[in-house]
C-alpha cells in the first residue's frame, strides 16, 4: 500500500512536470519492474490532472498558443450573436417541454375522465439534470436523481410533490398558492424563487429562499423565510441561517458549489452528479467539512484529484463507474 501511494504521487508529479532527479530514478525503476507497471502508469496518467503551480504563466502560454490557432473566434460580435441565439434555443426547449407536459396532462385527463387525480411525473435520472415548465408557467430545474409529481388539475391546484432537489421560479398567482410537498414538510408560496433539497439519504431537508417569501408548513408548525435565508429540518429540529443563495442554486447553472459540507455528503453529491459509485474506506474523513466550487466540465477524476491534495486521501478507479477512496 505504501508503495502504491508513493507511486501515485510520483505519477502526479510527473504529470505536473515537477519530478526531482531522485524521483525520476525511483519512477524509472518502478516502470522497469514489469510491463504491468508500465500499463498502469499510462492508465493513471490518463486520469491524472496536472496541477499547475504558476497559473499565470500557464494561462499566458495557453492564451498565446490559442491566439495563433483560433483567431476567427475572437470577434466579440460573433460571440454575442451566439449567446443570443443560444438563449433562444434554450427558451424554445423550455417551451417545447412545457407544451409536452401540457399535452400529456391533457391527454391523460381526457383518457381518464373518471380519475381526477391523474399524476404527471417528471424525473431527472442520476448523472443528469432537467428543466421543465409547469402548466402554470412556473419553471422547475430538477437536479440529478430527483422527481416531481403533480396532478392534472394543476392549474387550479398548484401542488408539486418533490423527491430529491429542485429549484423553482414560481409564476405569481394570488388566488392559487403554489405548494411543494416533501416527506418532511411543505413549502407554500405565491410567486417567488427558491430551492428545495429533499433527498431521502441526506438526513435533512433544506429550503433556500432567493426572492419573495415562502411559508414552511409542518403539521401545525408554521415558519416564514426571508430572501437569503435557508432552513434545515434535521432530527425534527428547524435550523434557520443566512446564506449566500448563489451557492445553493449553483447546480442549476452546472456549477458544483458547496459550503461547509461534510465529506460524506460531498461524496454522495458527486455520485449523483457524475453517476458513479464511490466507496470510502477511511472513516476519519467522513465528518470533515469542506467548501469549494467545481464546474460541470471537470471530470470526476479532476474533481477527486483536486480534493485529494486538499484532503489527503488516495483514490482508485476500480472499474466502470466505481471508485474507492482510502
Amino acid at each position: 500500500m505504501e508503495k502504491g501511494n508513493s507511486i501515485n504521487i510520483l505519477i502526479q508529479k510527473y504529470s505536473n512536470g515537477t519530478l526531482k532527479p531522485a524521483e525520476e530514478e525511483q519512477l524509472y525503476l518502478w516502470l522497469n519492474e514489469s510491463a504491468l507497471n508500465r500499463d498502469l502508469f499510462r492508465e493513471r496518467l490518463n486520469e491524472t490532472v496536472p496541477e499547475v503551480k504558476d497559473q499565470v504563466r500557464f494561462n499566458s502560454a495557453l492564451a498565446k498558443t490559442k491566439s495563433r490557432l483560433f483567431k476567427e473566434q475572437k470577434s466579440s460580435r460573433k460571440i454575442q450573436f451566439k449567446g443570443k441565439f443560444r438563449r433562444w434555443i434554450e427558451l424554445a426547449a423550455v417551451l417545447v417541454l412545457g407544451i409536452l407536459i401540457k399535452v400529456s396532462v391533457d391527454y391523460f385527463g381526457a383518457a381518464n375522465l373518471d380519475n381526477e387525480n391523474q399524476l404527471c411525473k417528471i424525473a431527472a435520472p442520476i448523472g443528469q439534470k432537467s428543466q421543465v415548465m409547469l402548466p402554470d408557467g412556473s419553471k422547475v430545474w430538477l437536479n440529478s436523481e430527483s422527481v416531481i409529481e403533480f396532478n392534472n388539475n394543476f392549474a387550479s391546484n398548484r401542488v408539486v410533490k418533490l423527491e430529491g432537489e429542485a429549484y423553482f421560479e414560481v409564476e405569481k398567482d394570488k388566488d392559487h398558492a403554489f405548494q411543494v410537498q416533501t416527506k418532511s414538510y411543505n413549502v407554500v408560496v405565491h410567486g417567488t424563487r427558491f430551492n428545495v433539497m429533499a433527498y431521502d439519504d441526506l438526513g435533512y431537508t433544506q429550503t433556500t429562499l432567493v426572492e419573495g417569501s415562502v411559508e414552511i408548513q409542518r403539521g401545525k408548525q408554521q415558519l416564514f423565510l426571508e430572501p437569503g435565508e435557508q432552513i434545515n429540518l434535521q432530527n425534527g429540529q428547524f435550523i434557520e441561517r443566512k446564506v449566500n443563495t448563489d451557492i445553493a442554486i449553483a447546480w442549476k447553472d452546472n456549477k458544483f458549489r458547496f459550503d461547509s459540507v461534510k465529506f460524506s455528503e460531498l461524496i454522495r453529491r458527486l455520485e449523483r452528479w457524475y453517476d458513479v459509485d464511490i466507496e470510502i474506506s477511511n472513516s476519519a474523513l467522513l465528518e470533515q467539512e469542506f467548501s469549494g466550487v467545481f464546474k460541470n466540465d471537470e471530470t470526476i477524476f479532476q474533481v477527486l484529484t483536486a480534493l485529494k491534495y486538499y484532503v489527503g486521501f488516495e483514490y482508485k478507479h476500480e472499474g466502470f463507474r466505481k471508485i474507492t477512496i482510502k
Partner: peptide, 10 residues
C-alpha cells in the same frame, strides 16, 4: 494543452 503542457515543458 492542459493535460500535456506541464510534463512536455518539463
Amino acid at each position: 494543452f492542459r493535460q500535456y503542457f506541464p510534463r512536455l515543458e518539463a
